[in-house]
Amino acid sequence: MLELKLVKESLFLNVLEAILDLVAVASVSCSSTGLKLQAMDAKGVAFISLLIPAKEFQFYHCDKDLSMGIAIGDMVEAIRSADKDGTITIKASDENFRNITVSIESPECNETTSFSLLLVTLKRFCIPELQGLLKKYDACVQMPSVDFMRICKYLSNVDGDVDISTIDKGIRFFALGKCGCLNVKYMQPEKATDIDISVQAPVSLTLDLKYMNSFAKVSALSNQVKLCLSKGQPLVVQCKIGQKTKSRIIYLLAPKIKG
């Protein structure tokens, strides 16, 4: 049996809101240590992995490992109407493993609304263990998420693709659209800061801009974001969710191949 409780204004729900423009259904695995959500966008271009340790929830109990397909779009839609201080409880039982129950309790505890959400069948897709993969990556950029969001906002003025390339002591974002082009150079400052750009080998990736803008939404929930690039490999965008937590989200974005 699984039971977890959270307040409506929790980071978990804010993250779900932020990823909904990419995915509407997700594979959710729960164990005694926490919850893992994985989802791929409809075109199979972006992959999202979200990890929330059990202690991040107001209450968390899972006595048996569970894996289920959840229409997170429908779930978030139902929770949106709840009071901002309301408490959300999500339950799944072993006896009836065809749906989950989501209950919303008002802050005064005088009103409870429950709804049953049918589970969906999803073909699971597993990616390799990422930390091992990233050791072989060519370049990593740790940067404040406000910088990443600002750059994505600049890029959103150009409709098309973005080329992210390593340059001497930094990286370059270049977008070419119908109305013109945009060039952003992001360099490693001389003084120690919260920016860390490490380049083992030159790399350049061409990526669909619309996905970058979706990633920027989630990075708004975190102070720092880390981009990892490697030749011919998906872009990896990682960020911790919130401060002083071990919750984290990882995006993978498949590049475009020129020619």
Binding site: M40, K43, V45, C126, I127, P128, G160, T206, A254, I257
Partner: peptide
């Protein structure tokens, strides 16, 4: 622009 690859193409063997 280029040819969009999918995530599955990179990790198909795993």
């Amino acid at each position: 622009s280029g040819v969009q690859r999918s995530i599955k193409e990179f990790y198909r063997s795993t």
